[in-house]
Amino acid sequence: MSTTAIETKVALDQALNLDTAPRKQSSVEVTDYNNRQTVGNITVDNPKMVCRGVNVYYGEKHAIKNVGLDIGANEVIAFIGPSGCGKSTFLRCLNRMNDTIPICRVTGQIRLDSDDIYDKSIDVVQLRARVGMVFQKPNPFPKSIYENVAYGPRIHGMVNDKAELDDLVRASLERAGLIKEVDKRMGEPGTSLSGGQQQRLCIARAIAVNPEVILMDEPCSALDPIATAKIEELIDELRENYTIIIVTHSMQQAARVSQRTAYFHLGDLIEVGDTDQIFTNPKHKLTEDYITGRFG
């Protein structure tokens, strides 16, 4: 904790620009000298995604302010914070879902492995195949369960024949822990499932294209506790194969599923750290206030 955050970031960006090879370690060490700076050691081994100086504007509104964050491979990182703090907005930057909103503008740098995802040479189609997403409300397509899962592989041309596709669909459903429940009803519409099953179907749909990162935007907020428990269990299993970034409204959920937690407040990234540390010993006053339920 010796230099200011800005200096650190500038230095690091320069280093990053020179070096395009995958890095084994990436680190931003920042200090807190006013409320607007992130605290915590955000060093990760084996970074999967690296964000530097990310700003998001909705028209005139400055929604994300100069956020720097590293996300390690095969970790589950949770974004928490009060509503409207920008955690979902930031999440949607990571697979450029904000592109669909005309007034939204993103500056700064976000890297997936060695690729700058906002670079012109990056195809958003390819990016989204690599960075999957699961939404707040389960949104199965109005198609059969099978077709829902087969959708991604089909559009990306991932399989050569029907048998391969069958295998892939079954394997994805299995990973999503849904295969037992839907084995006999693959032809039924996805919407005929219960809410929790629908959400797991959406997870199966996302992992069918074998992404590297899965973004989850409050995936359990529309579900009952039992369904939530199942999804949380699933997230824990998926960690083995994927990097998972989860936005959640529930601190308990963050504590249960994530290794690291990032706390956002009014567009600022306030604190990042190991989940245990954030919840037991927050370094920042705002984080503490939020954790202890003074607001939220």
Binding site: M97, T100, V125, F141, A206
Partner: peptide, 26 residues
């Protein structure tokens, strides 16, 4: 609903794929 489009885009579908395979059937 927009969530249908989002679901499709998030999987990496192009606009026309989303229209032909999700929007129109829906």
């Amino acid at each position: 609903p927009q969530s249908m489009r989002d679901g499709s885009y998030a999987l990496g579908a192009t606009k026309s794929e989303t229209i032909q395979r999700v929007l129109l059937p829906a």
